[in-house]
């Protein structure tokens, strides 16, 4: 059931990619609206796919790289759709639709977890921890994408190149508003994700913080975003410098998510997650 839903989700995202590319070329509002409908439908199917996989295995399906990419793309799509209810940056769909399609495609060819999830992972605490963290990643990815658009638009304006590309990109103010709200919401969710993980670790593993590589890198990511928020709020680094620092922070976030999961040992490593046992030394 979940794999059929997975395919349907992918189909909807690919359809939306086509619609948004057409929108970028012809700039018809109807194409954007159709693309948005396809994305919402895809996101609904995606949610159902995750829920059905959850019911099948008894634990939130986030126990290896394949499943984590799947949930990350869900978080990214959800974040961009929800944020856009208020901000209405139309071009965002043209970035998230192909990106989430690629993420889902990558997930499709990666292997399924080789072991049923350990009992420790079926707790609701784990589900909340994973969903909040990956939704935060999604929101911070939206900030990153918005930052890229910001830098692109900014360089067009500086070069006084006010042609086709300039007309297709949203105004700097609007992009900055998008970046700000995604950044703040992402930072809060990341904090909540770290806290729920700490609570569960205290209950089951005996300490709220173990200096596991994933924990440390998540803390590094958190510190960078904290620094970014300070520069924005206090020093007024909206705009270019903020966008560059945001890109650095997002690079570190990606490393925390993928690099640490693949390269470092520890109980958060993708290949040891399903077998997570308690009372780690």
């Amino acid at each position: 059931m979940s794999s059929a839903l997975h395919c349907a989700t992918l189909a909807a995202y690919i359809l939306a990619t086509g619609l948004y590319l057409a929108f970028v070329v012809w700039q018809r509002r109807s194409l954007h609206l159709a693309g948005r409908v396809a994305l919402w439908a895809g996101f609904g199917l995606h949610t159902l796919a995750i829920c059905s996989a959850w019911l099948e295995s008894g634990a939130l399906p986030a126990t290896n790289l394949r499943q984590s990419l799947d949930i990350f793309s869900w978080g990214l799509m959800g974040a961009s759709l929800v944020i856009n209810l208020r901000r209405d940056v139309m071009i965002l769909g043209a970035l998230t639709a192909p990106l989430c399609s690629l993420l889902l495609l990558a997930a499709s060819v990666l292997p399924m977890p080789d072991a049923p999830p350990s009992k420790l992972l079926s707790s609701l605490w784990v589900a909340v921890h994973v969903i909040t963290v990956l939704a935060a990643y999604g929101l911070l990815a939206v900030t990153f994408l918005g930052g890229v658009l910001y830098l692109a638009q900014d360089s067009l304006i500086r070069a006084k190149n006010l042609g086709a590309a300039f007309r297709r990109l949203p105004s700097l103010t609007r992009l900055d508003a998008l970046n700000h709200s995604a950044l703040v919401a992402g930072f809060i969710l990341l904090t909540v994700g770290l806290i729920t993980g700490a609570i569960y670790a205290q209950i089951k593993l005996g300490s709220y913080w173990r200096w596991d590589p994933k924990e440390v890198w998540a803390l590094i990511t958190w510190l960078l975003y904290a620094a970014l928020i300070h520069t924005r709020l206090v020093q007024g680094w909206r705009g270019r410098r903020g966008a560059w620092l945001g890109a650095l922070a997002f690079g570190v976030l990606l490393f925390t998510f993928l690099g640490v999961g693949l390269l470092f040992p520890g109980y958060h490593a993708f290949d040891s997650l399903p077998k997570l046992e308690g009372n780690l030394p």
């Binding site: 200096w211 590589p213 440390v216 890198w217 803390l219 590094i220 510190l223 960078l224 904290a226 620094a227 300070h230 520069t231 020093q235 570190v252 640490v260 470092f264």
Partner: peptide, 18 residues
């Protein structure tokens, strides 16, 4: 500025332990 620097220094040095 000090907070900003300290946050970045903490982030950078934490890497070593991983």
């Amino acid at each position: 500025k000090l907070s900003f620097a300290l946050l970045l220094i903490l982030a950078a040095t934490s890497v070593a332990g991983t």
